[in-house]
């Protein structure tokens, strides 16, 4: 596959600020790095301990467990709606992956689990997930329920104080997307930015096909 690295097709807005006189404005082309590094492909498998096991509430207000998604592959991401950068980036990426999967997305349950359940209520999640993909499922719960889910997935998150943030705190968290097998066992983990969405969709398709053959 080809990575899109267009160093040439930049929108350029040049702003020049000088103090003395009206000056000649020259155009500077800045290399705009998108953060894609194809040499840095990280995919690791075989984490026996990681499993899909949870008791949470979906964005429709229904209590759900991993059993509700049994028989389907799960694409799972832990994040929070006050996250300005990585979460929307990753969720939008997951949405693109689902689009790329086309009809095969039927076999995949895309789950977004909040690590900030106090602020991410059912109502908030409902509006939030809908913005990324109609199939995306938002999951919240009590602090304890979320902690249990994170423990099962071996997801690390922590709350840290940040004066500039709303309510004075942000969450540090892993940006991994988990691919879980139809029986709830761990299959693979991916990071947005390590491969384009179509490459991940292809990767998932291959794994689904392999599963069906066996």
């Amino acid at each position: 596959m080809t990575q899109i690295t267009s160093a040439h097709r930049k929108l350029r807005i040049i702003l020049w600020s000088g103090a003395i006189t009206a000056a000649v404005l020259t155009l500077g082309l800045a290399a705009f790095r998108m953060g894609d590094d194809p040499s840095h492909k990280v995919t690791y498998t075989g984490e026996a301990d990681i499993r899909s096991q949870f008791s949470l509430t979906n964005h429709e207000g229904q209590s759900v467990t991993e059993g509700d998604y049994a028989g389907r592959w799960q694409l799972v991401f832990f994040g929070f709606t006050h996250c300005p950068d990585i979460c929307p980036t990753t969720l939008a990426y997951m949405g693109t992956v689902l689009d790329e999967l086309g009809p095969k997305a039927e076999n995949v349950a895309p789950l977004f689990v909040t690590v900030d359940p106090t602020r991410d209520t059912v109502e908030i999640l409902k509006e939030y997930v809908a913005a990324f993909h109609p199939r995306l499922i938002g999951l919240t719960g009590s602090e304890a329920q979320v902690a249990e889910a994170a423990e099962a997935f071996k997801v690390y998150y922590e709350r840290f104080e940040e004066e500039s943030a709303p309510a004075g705190y942000l969450m540090a968290h892993a940006g991994h997307i988990y691919l879980m097998r139809p029986d709830g066992r761990f299959e693979a983990v991916f990071l947005e930015g390590n491969q384009p969405a179509d490459a991940l969709a292809e990767e998932i398709t291959i794994r689904i096909a392999k599963e069906m053959r066996s």
């Binding site: 702003l15 020049w16 600020s17 000056a23 705009f32 908030i124």
Partner: peptide
Amino acid sequence: TPAFADVTVTAPWARASILASRPGA
């Protein structure tokens, strides 16, 4: 002249936000 400063800002953009109550980037 020290005041001859040249700053170039390229390709600014923001992602559409989902909820006004949530931060933008």
